[in-house]
Amino acid sequence: MTREQRRLVETMRSTTFDYSALARSRDGFGGGMQWLKVKKFEYLTRYRRDPITGEQKATSIGRRSPETEAIYDRFITGRADLDRQMGALRPELAEQARMAKALRLSRAPSEIGDVARAIGLSEMIDHITIIGEAAVYTYECEMAALFPREILPDDGMDLLVAGVHPTDVIDELIAVLRRARIEVQRARLSRDKAAVELKTDEGLSIRLYTISTLENLVDQYAEVTSYGAEAVRWALDQPVMRSILIDRNGRAALAAVLEPRAYCMLRFMALDVEEMSLIRREASSELTAAVVKLVHERWTEPFAEDHVQTIGPLQDALGEDGIPSAPRM
């Protein structure tokens, strides 16, 4: 990235983190409160619309009293304060989006950006991590470098979600997406039967994994290379990091992603255990090798020597001397 691009990305990062935090706090004020008169008494009622069924549900908090009046005042004041702060940031976000397009930082497909943004503006950001190739858009922003556009992915999102089975969070995720006006349908199990798949109306495929389903894939990988499987287990133990991606409309989205070295380990495993066409495998291999080179040149921590020695494709991507080979393109 140029100095101007780097400066804008850092500004967008700060604004997006701030706005996303406000939006998550604003979720707690969803729906509203009102006083309802029943016979001769007034009762404070909290109402919300169920994001899945669309039905409005109301709960009585209690008869009018100094305590319920204080609850009502805190609710109205807190919601108004958050709305004011978010409103103040929206012009900045719009201006930054315009500048991002002008500086050619608009990279991720808009469908991916919309899904990532919906998750990043909700509490689901604490429970969902992008683990597939869509994560490369965040690594561009995190390491201030741009991949060649022709190798960038655009065919789906792989998400690591909380729960024992991917179906555990489907309803919550669908609700978050529908609030952002993204309609999704449940699709079939993926071919590898490790993930549950959702499809948006725009045709974006979203595959959901959990730690337990990934561990099943690691067990399959261990049959190919036991030491490589240990490297993947190391990868899954690494802390999740948060960064931003910028979509083709220039809009930033907060996203939780794997540490980039961990991402590379997971992608090398996927190349060995997932079913994919030859064309898809070549494209994925090339993209993973490009991320390896970027990590080697710009990430704060180097690849561990034992990981390099135990994962053949990682060693190939780095070369015999631990230096990335020249890109094929």
Rank of each mutant, 00 (worst) to 15 (best):
M12G: 01
G32L: 04
V38D: 12
L22P: 00
M12C: 06
M33E: 08
F17N: 01
E10A: 06
L36P: 01
L36D: 08
R26W: 02
F29L: 08
T11K: 03
G30I: 05
Q34D: 12
R13H: 15
S20D: 07
M12H: 04
R24W: 08
T15Y: 03
R26A: 07
G31D: 12
K40H: 15
R24K: 09
S25F: 03
R26Y: 11
R24T: 12
V38P: 07
M33G: 02
E10V: 01
F29P: 02
A21H: 05
Y19H: 10
G32C: 09
F29V: 06
R13S: 15
G28Q: 14
L36S: 09
L8R: 00
D27S: 11
G31Q: 10
L22V: 06
M33L: 15
R13W: 13
V9E: 00
T15P: 00
T16D: 15
D18G: 01
G30C: 05
R7K: 12
W35E: 14
Q34H: 11
D18P: 01
T11S: 07
T11C: 05
K37M: 13
D18M: 03
A23N: 07
F17W: 02
K37D: 10
E10Y: 04
R7N: 08
R6W: 10
K37N: 11
S20R: 02
K39R: 14
T11P: 00
R6Y: 09
D27M: 11
R26P: 05
F17G: 01
L8M: 03
F17T: 01
V38Q: 11
Y19L: 09
R6A: 15
F29M: 05
R24L: 10
T16R: 04
M33Y: 08
T15K: 03
A23Y: 02
V38W: 11
R24Q: 14
G31L: 14
V9R: 00
F17Q: 03
R6T: 14
Y19S: 06
S14Y: 01
D18W: 00
R6V: 13
K37E: 15
G30D: 14
K37L: 13
D27L: 09
T16Y: 04
V38I: 13
S20P: 08
S20Q: 05
W35L: 12
F29S: 02
L8F: 03
R6C: 10
G28R: 10
A21N: 04
G31F: 14
R26S: 08
R24H: 10
